Amino acid sequence: MVNIANVDLRLLRVFTTIVECNGFSAAQAELNISQSTISNHMIALEERLRSKLCQRGRSGFELTDHGRVVYEAALRLFAALDEFSSETESLHGMLTGGLRIGVVDNTVTDPHSPVAEALRRFSKRPNNVSIKLVVDSPPALQRQVVDRRIDLAIFGFVPRLPNLRYQNLYTESSALYCGEGHPLFARDEAELSIDMIRDHAFASRSYWCNQDLERVGLAKTAASVEQMEAQLMLVLSGAYLAFLPMHYAQGWVESGRLKPILVDETSYAVRFQLATRKGVHTTPTLKAFIQDLYGAVGVNGRKKNEPELPALASWQPRRTRHEAALVMN
């Protein structure tokens, strides 16, 4: 049996950082210590646990089977310590610990996103909380919630995982766009048709699993991306069509660089959801932020008459041009 001392906690934090940075070199900047010091810490931890935790060398960094067990146990240990700190400090009306929030890239321009308002509300609570805001793709955010690297994530459409809890927050509307210089850019809307746009290359986000392309009868994309900014770059090249969130594209439309096409036929809305891990105690800090999140949306959870979303989709029926305009306003 290994008795955990303060020195062991420091070594374990170094170890988990190395794993999350996928190697010693990348962990240097995160830990702000030299690589030789990191190596010495790892040697000390391996000697303490009498186990080889990782392989490092020319082939790269890789956890051993023992290393994976220790990493998962360390995450549970730190979560329990944070929970203890948060619970005890809350007895005095003070929120403490860490709060790790995951969001999708380029949602800051969405007027319906409650994140900024929730952070404002949370900041007014008596707290000594360290906030970490992570921006990544929906699948990556899901993995981080599962691995306990973040406490909650807010994103739209990805296949649901059984060990996560999903709660509806708001919807994001998207439309099909072409960029300046694209053959369809100068065409009159009345001249366009679904059949016509199928002849052009599309750029799609990989985690959509081609469900956006299916709206126009396509099964394969010409370019695949993980982030919206990369997708926007492809559209701005004038060589690709793509579905983009209306709030994200609006500035480029106003500057004359993007043009929405066939809005009535192709636009859609995606339900954004809050994802948290099942089986994990909700600390006072996390509970307070979730309350502020729902306060920012103006609702308290799912509406009574609103059905649960299907397990593998969160599409809503497409909106007409008029409805889409109302959403954006």
Rank of each mutant, 00 (worst) to 15 (best):
F15W: 08
F15C: 01
V19F: 12
E20P: 05
E20D: 14
G23I: 07
S25T: 15
S25N: 14
Q28W: 05
S36T: 14
S36M: 14
N40I: 09
H41R: 10
A44F: 06
L45S: 03
C54A: 15
G60N: 03
G60M: 04
V69A: 10
V70C: 10
Y71I: 03
D82M: 04
E83D: 10
L91A: 11
M94Y: 10
M94N: 12
M94A: 10
L95P: 02
G98F: 12
V104E: 15
T109K: 11
P111T: 06
A116E: 13
E117P: 03
D147E: 13
L152F: 13
G156K: 09
P162N: 09
Y166N: 05
P183L: 01
E191V: 00
L192S: 00
S193P: 00
D195C: 00
D199K: 09
S206H: 09
L213I: 12
L213F: 06
V216W: 07
V216M: 13
A219K: 14
A222V: 02
A223E: 08
V225E: 02
Q227S: 14
E229W: 09
L241A: 06
L241D: 02
L244P: 02
M246C: 15
H247A: 08
E254S: 14
E254A: 12
G256C: 08
R257S: 06
K259G: 00
S267R: 03
G279T: 01
T282P: 08
T282G: 08
T283H: 01
P284L: 00
L293E: 03
G295N: 05
R302T: 12
P307E: 06
A311E: 08
L326P: 04
V327C: 10
M328C: 09
